[in-house]
Amino acid sequence: MSTEYDVTETLDVKGLSCPMPVVQTKQAVDELDADDVLEVVATDSGSVSDLSGWADSTAGVELLGQEEGEAGGEAVYRHYVRVTE
């Protein structure tokens, strides 16, 4: 899938529900360097609000964008998080 972001790594949290998409995103971000972009692929509809809330109040990350799509008849949410420090 083409994306406007220069993705460094993709985290697949499809099938997982709250709080795992946020928790695993944080764990993945901790492994990345400044300016890296993490793509998070989730099926949890709550992840849209949760990840933007998390990015808003967490130092060192910036939410570049969120996209809603579909794969195999299932809604898929893609989140792009940039590491800022």
Partner: peptide, 9 residues
């Protein structure tokens, strides 16, 4: 759930 999420923050 709250503890692990807060840790992620």
């Amino acid at each position: 759930i709250l503890a692990s999420t807060a840790a992620a923050f």
